[in-house]
């Protein structure tokens, strides 16, 4: 049987293998992704972000268990950081999802960031498609919670949950930049802790100051470890989902995503082409020149780009 057919029938092993291919050799994987494309678009993708330790894995586990009760099939993408030095990683989010691992209708995949800029959001999107084609109805993406690529990755989802917890001190300042704006629902986890009400006031204030979209994102209190607030959280997700569909916002988000995907894929192809044509030797040459102060990096790249352009025109 074809790999894509096996995936469509929900074969875990086939899907897992293709995900590996996506991560290791995207060019090759595209062949199969093409075959899956027409079966995608059914799943709802939920992004879960927030600082490390805020309870992302715990909440994902709880939500998944809650949804399993209504019988929906689930997939989870759990992203953890790779070491920038060795490329290795310890992926530990599954610790909190142990009971889910033997549920046939739950598929969990841990992914290291592997340090490619832009690469992660591209492969995350591909992994979502594979899971979607497998017939998973709800797909969670648990992100690392910090760093530059964070926002790019989380934008692969339809609805974004932003987790915060009391007692973070100044951390909330860091989160403000960029991420506050993309949270569709604010989850105040660890609300068993002191400072919960203060945090909620802070969030409300920040939202009223910053939010230009004139919406009113819900703030939901949860205690992940005690399974409290999970039902309310899921109700809010469903409510918002309907709302976004009705307003046409969901359609818009998906459209933007496709645009972004084309952009990413295109960029990657061109990048590869560029380096193929120019070659490592030419680049090394320029590096040497810059080192010797013979040329500046701006002019060097300009020169290389010119060469590249000519090559392309020649090559047709």
């Amino acid at each position: 049987m074809k790999l894509s057919d096996r995936i469509r029938q929900g074969d875990t092993r086939a899907a897992a293998k293709l995900i590996t291919m996506v991560e290791n050799d995207f060019q090759q994987a595209q062949k199969y992704l093409k075959e899956l494309q027409e079966y995608c678009g059914q799943a709802t993708v939920i992004g879960i972000t927030g600082p490390p330790g805020s309870g992302k894995s715990t909440i994902t586990d709880r939500l998944a268990k809650h949804i399993r009760k209504i019988g929906k099939k689930i997939a989870i993408i759990a992203i953890d950081p790779s070491s920038p030095f060795t490329g290795g990683a310890i992926l530990g989010d599954r610790i909190r999802m142990q009971d889910l691992s033997t549920d046939k209708d739950v598929f969990i995949r841990s992914i290291g960031t592997r340090g490619q800029l832009g690469g992660l959001s591209r492969s995350t999107q591909a992994v979502v498609k594979i899971m979607d084609a497998m017939g998973k109805e709800i797909i969670f993406i648990e992100t690392v919670g910090v760093g530059q690529s964070e926002i790019e990755v989380i934008k692969v989802s339809d609805i974004i949950l932003l987790l915060l917890m009391p007692g973070m001190g100044d951390d909330i300042q860091i989160i403000k930049a960029g991420i506050m704006e993309i949270g569709d629902i604010f989850v105040v986890n660890k609300s068993d802790r002191e400072g919960t009400d203060r945090l909620i006031v802070e969030i409300e204030m920040m939202l009223s100051l910053n939010d230009v979209r004139k919406r009113n994102p819900a703030i939901i209190k949860t205690i992940g470890t005690e399974n409290i607030g999970i039902e309310e959280l899921w109700q809010e997700v469903e409510r918002l989902n309907v709302y976004l569909q009705d307003k046409g916002e969901m359609q818009l988000r998906r459209k933007n995503r496709i645009r972004k995907e084309i952009h990413d894929l295109f960029l990657e192809n061109w990048q590869e082409l560029f380096f193929q044509f120019i070659g490592e030797d030419n680049i090394e040459n320029e590096v040497q020149k810059i080192l010797k102060q013979d040329i500046d990096p701006y002019s060097a790249v300009q020169k290389l780009t010119e060469v590249f352009k000519k090559q392309i025109i020649k090559g047709g």
Partner: peptide
């Protein structure tokens, strides 16, 4: 330089095998 999936204590054979397959 490897990716290690760490699942913690008290794993049953079923959990280990299922995890190994999902994580390829």
């Amino acid at each position: 330089g490897m990716e290690v999936i760490y699942t913690g204590l008290r794993q049953t054979p079923e959990q280990i095998v299922e995890t190994a397959i999902q994580e390829d």
